[in-house]
Structure formats: C-alpha cells, structure tokens
Simulated scan of single mutants.
Amino acid sequence: MSLFSDNIRALRVRAKISQEKLAEELGITRGRYVKYEDGTSEAPYDILKKMALYYHISIDLLLTVDVRKIHLEDLLKLENNRLLLPIQIDVAGENVIEVVTEKAKAGYLTGFADPDYIESLQQISLPFLGSGKYRGFPVEGDSMPPHEKGSIIVGRYVEKLGDVRDGKTYILITKNHGMVYKRLNKNKKNSLVLESDNSFYPNYEVKFSEILEIWEFQCSIGRTDRKNELSELGELKGLVLELKREVLKLKRE
C-alpha cells in the first residue's frame, strides 16, 4: 500500500462515493480504479490531475501528505481552489516567482491549477521575501494608487480564509470579476467587501464561492517615478460623484 492509495481511499470515503461512481467520474473502469486504491498499479499523470481537480486539492497533497491527518475544513474552502499550488524551483532548489504577464492574464483563470500552464509563465527571484509561495500579477486601471497599469504586484498565497486581515490589500482571482487587486474587509458572513484606494470607485462584495485564489500583497514592481497624482484625482472624482448623488437625491424629493 502507498500513501497515495490511502489518500484516495480516505477521500472517497469522506466524499461518500462508490468506487464505481468515482471511476465513472474519472472516465475509467472500476477495475482500473481499484488497482490505484489497493496499490497494485500507479495512476498516470492524466488520472492524477483528474483526481486532484475532483477533490479540489493538489497532486502534491495526494502524493506526499497523509490527508487523513489534515482538517480540510480548516483550509480555504473555495470552489475549484487548490489547497497547494504547482511549485517551480530553480537550479539551487529555491522557489521561483511566476509572473502572470498582461499577455498571460486571460489564460490564468482556467490555468491556475494546471502545472503545465504554471510552468509556461515567466519567472523571477526575490530572495528578500523569505518563506512562502509567491506569484506576480499585473496591475490594471487606476483604482489602487500609486500602483499603475503595467506594474506587477507580488503576492503571497493565502491558504486559510482566517488569515485574511481587514484593511490589507490582496490579489483575488474570482469567477465573475476576474483578477482584481483590492483592499479587503471580512465584515460580511459569506462574502468579502472589496475597497479601492481611489475613492472614485465604489466598494462591492464578492461571495466566498466566487473566489478561486487569494494572494496577500508583499511588494510591487513598477517602471515609473512620476509624482503620485492619482490619489488627488481620485478624491476630486469622488467629490464630483458625491455631488451628483446629492443632486439626484434633491430631484427625487
């Protein structure tokens, strides 16, 4: 028996699904699946990937960690989220930082859990960041000054929802809003409130079930040294917007 065999049996029992039903979900015969569970045959990569996606955990977790000793309910329970990420290392054995460029951004929403896609991303190294899993994401728009379009936000992967701190900034990968960089607050039971530092942009909520990944801000990489005028512009826009609201309110009265 192998750790992998024990894991897939434990996960199947926990999910209360039969071997026959699971085999059907994986697109294989029950006889073939049974061999993986009793340890007489090794699952190929395509089956490992299907199992990881089915249970919403990573291949790393299936192969190297005893899932019976992990309280999965304590980890970030987000639909289609992986508990561990595909990790790249350099020749020295150090973690590298994958950078999602503007060109690669569109593919990230479907490829974030695909090791082949992650491997195709550009890579950098920032030794001062220390331990953790980091990734770089492109900035879009002017909602979070002083970060501008073309800058890269480097974030540290957040595994537990409880680790999200009110008032801190995060990169969120979401189903309905795509990739966003906002200041978060957990003052809603089943959702997060997303706030822009540029007051021109209104706050909005994202339900936990819409979130695929969360990355906490660690540093930014930019190419401009001009004075920050965006915050002042945002305040002006905010005042104009507030004035329009007051005018509309008076008209209704």
Rank of each mutant, 00 (worst) to 15 (best):
L85F: 02
T224C: 06
D142S: 07
L109V: 15
T174N: 01
V65W: 06
E235T: 11
N198M: 12
F4H: 10
N190R: 05
Q122M: 11
D166V: 02
L192C: 00
D46H: 05
R12Q: 10
R82F: 15
L161R: 02
V180D: 00
E119Q: 11
L248G: 08
D163Q: 11
K189I: 11
K244H: 14
R245E: 15
F128L: 03
D114S: 07
D66N: 07
V180Y: 02
A15D: 15
E24M: 10
V65D: 08
D197E: 09
H177Y: 11
L184E: 01
L75R: 05
L76E: 12
F200Y: 12
S191V: 06
N7P: 14
D38Y: 05
R183M: 15
E73N: 03
Y157L: 09
D142R: 00
S191W: 00
L192F: 07
L184N: 01
I87C: 11
L72T: 06
K149L: 12
E140T: 13
Y134P: 14
I87Q: 10
P127D: 03
L53S: 07
E79P: 06
N228M: 10
L184Y: 01
F200Q: 06
E94P: 00
V13H: 11
L62A: 04
N198C: 08
E213Q: 12
R12V: 15
T64N: 13
K182W: 04
E246Q: 12
L84R: 15
E148H: 14
Q218Y: 05
P115I: 04
F137E: 08
M179Y: 03
D60W: 01
K133S: 12
S18G: 07
N80C: 10
K77M: 12
G39K: 00
I214L: 07
V67H: 09
I97M: 00
E25H: 01
R156L: 08
I70Y: 01
L212A: 13
Q19A: 14
Q19Y: 11
N81M: 13
M1Q: 11
R32K: 09
E235K: 10
E235D: 15
G107I: 10
V180R: 02
G93S: 01
L121C: 08
T101F: 04
D163I: 10
L161I: 13
L83Y: 09
S120Q: 07
F200W: 08
D38G: 02
E42D: 14
Y157K: 10
I57F: 01
A23S: 05
Q123G: 02
Q122S: 14
I89E: 13
Y45F: 10
G238H: 07
L3K: 04
L212Y: 13
E25V: 07
